[in-house]
């Protein structure tokens, strides 16, 4: 009995070890390295004296770090709110409509999902072209006689972040749509039939019966949205650049982190200590969001 247990244990570790090694080497180690680095002062690229939480203090209270950090965090919040409100609402709508098996639903299911498969860099680059002052979007507006609404979509402070978020919604909306479609399809048919027999309208059917039953998917998508919004980087990097241009209006904690840790060729030098500290903060925020989500999903599962 003991012998087989040991054998089993050895076999399990044999299979787990390679994965564990990769995770340790490429995820855990860098994580602790950045935590370690964030506790030191840095002289250019060399680690200096241990300074405890000084780098964190600077981010939360020192000029100009505090201003930049809060500005970036505010933009992440904007990303979260708009993605949650617009992308996920459209996602539920699409998912529900697709589940109704309207004519052409198979075609639309694929169309909605295709942009999800595109490389984010290619999407950023192409939409960067479309959103130029002389690009496709403004040309289309002018063609429709709406030339007065032509804008420097990525160059105007008020709308630059909104433009990037809109592009990201275009790219990603297929994902929540499919998740919600699967969830709605999983709603037991007898529930729906019973409701139809009682003469319930489509609106009440959705809100009273379907929506409560797809809450777990809503939670999953919300959690992914929170994590995605905290980690926004490539979208901004490819469309307005590392500097969060114009005038920091598209800066996110991702671009702020990169710029601070590695420096920006055209304007600044690296500050590894502060950069690492920002990295640790991003990690902590994501970690907290994940924990909260796991707990809340579990409790929902019990309810159901």
């Amino acid at each position: 009995m003991m012998k087989t247990d040991v054998r089993k244990g050895l076999w399990i570790s044999f299979f787990v070890l390679p994965g564990l090694l990769v995770v340790t080497l490429f995820i855990l180690l860098p994580l602790f390295m950045s935590l370690f680095n964030s506790l030191f002062s840095w002289n250019q690229l060399l680690r200096g004296a241990f300074v405890g939480l000084e780098n964190f203090r600077k981010i939360f209270s020192g000029y100009p770090y505090r201003e930049r950090f809060l500005n970036a965090l505010g933009n992440n919040a904007k990303w979260f709110l708009l993605t949650m409100l617009i992308q996920n609402t459209i996602g539920i709508l699409f998912g529900y409509l697709l589940s109704r098996r309207l004519p052409g639903h198979g075609f639309f299911k694929r169309i909605f999902f295709i942009p999800v498969l595109f490389s984010i860099v290619a999407v950023g680059f192409l939409w960067g072209l479309y959103l130029k002052p002389t690009g496709l979007v403004n040309a289309a507006l002018r063609l429709m006689g709406l030339g007065a609404y032509a804008r420097a979509w990525l160059g105007q402070e008020e709308i630059a972040t909104l433009s990037i978020i809109a592009v990201n919604i275009w790219r990603w909306v297929g994902f929540p749509s499919l998740v919600f479609l699967a969830a709605v399809d999983a709603v037991p048919a007898d529930c729906l039939e019973a409701a139809y027999l009682d003469g319930v309208g489509e609106w009440t059917l959705f809100w009273r019966i379907v929506f409560p039953l797809i809450i777990p998917s809503v939670t999953v998508i919300s959690v992914l949205t929170i994590i995605g919004s905290l980690n926004v980087f490539e979208q901004v990097y490819t469309m307005t650049g590392l500097d969060g241009s114009p005038n920091f209006s598209t800066d996110t904690i991702g671009t702020l982190f990169y710029r601070t840790a590695f420096g920006s060729v055209d304007s600044g030098n690296p500050e590894i200590g502060i950069g690492s500290a920002i990295g640790v903060i991003i990690y902590s925020l994501t970690f907290i969001a994940s924990i909260v989500s796991i707990i809340s999903t579990r409790s929902r599962e019990v309810e159901l």
Partner: peptide, 15 residues
């Protein structure tokens, strides 16, 4: 040093 004159000038000039 940070913030460099370039970082400050570039952003403010955009403003």
């Amino acid at each position: 040093q940070q913030p460099t004159g370039s970082v400050l000038a570039q952003a403010a000039l955009q403003g």
